[in-house]
Simulated assay, not measured.
Amino acid sequence: MFPVPFVLLLPLVSAQIYHWGPCPIPSVQPNFDLQKYLGTWYEIAKLPVATARGKCIKADYTLRGDGTISVLNSRFYKDKVRIAEGTAVIQDPNNPAKLGVSFSYFAPYSPYWVVSTDYVSGAVVYSCTDVFRIFHVDYAWIMGRSRFLPADTVEYARELLAKENIDTFMMSVTDQTGCD
């Protein structure tokens, strides 16, 4: 019989991508410039995320007066626009591409690592939750400044993740058609 805490984790990982062992530690964007990264990013592709189903998914990042980053995610799901508001922070000024993000006052910050970006067209983002170093849950996104990226750009982003030992087999393209 599994201990109760493990059983409680099963619904959280059932719609996610999980692997045995601890999280991989990918390289991140060198000399990351938060000011250039702020603004609107559209989700082009992602590993499955239970809380982000739907289409027309985008994220808006703006700097607040206190130095934190406002995160406003929106998606169209079940005939409604769904909004999630959160906060991102640079957790280590010496490594600003490794941000933390939270969508609840009570939740700890989750990793939000900018693996690569050119700031003007695309970005690759990775997050991972390590569960007692027994297994980990992967999250990865390919983001664009426009709703669509060229196929070769998306393939390059997938290859970049794979090179960092991140399994992209279950990555799916986000529907960005028919969006306002």
Rank of each mutant, 00 (worst) to 15 (best):
F2K: 12
P3K: 13
P5I: 09
L8D: 10
L9D: 04
S14I: 05
Q16C: 11
P24M: 03
S27L: 11
V28Q: 01
Q29R: 04
N31R: 15
L34T: 03
T40P: 03
K46S: 07
L47M: 07
P48Y: 11
V49C: 04
T51Q: 10
A52V: 14
G54L: 07
C56T: 08
I57D: 00
A59C: 13
D60A: 13
T62R: 09
R64F: 12
G67D: 06
G67R: 01
G67Y: 01
T68Q: 12
T68E: 11
S70D: 14
L72Q: 13
S74K: 08
R75Q: 08
K78I: 08
R82N: 07
A84Y: 08
G86E: 07
T87F: 03
A88D: 00
A88H: 00
V89D: 00
I90L: 04
Q91C: 11
G100W: 06
G100L: 09
G100S: 07
G100P: 00
Y105I: 08
P111C: 09
Y112F: 14
T117P: 00
V120A: 11
G122C: 01
V125C: 03
D130I: 09
V131P: 00
R133A: 11
D138K: 01
R145T: 05
R145W: 05
L149P: 01
D152M: 09
D152K: 10
E159W: 02
E164C: 07
N165K: 14
I166Q: 02
T168Y: 06
F169S: 15
T174D: 04
Q176A: 10
Q176G: 03
G178N: 08
G178M: 10
C179K: 08
D180K: 14
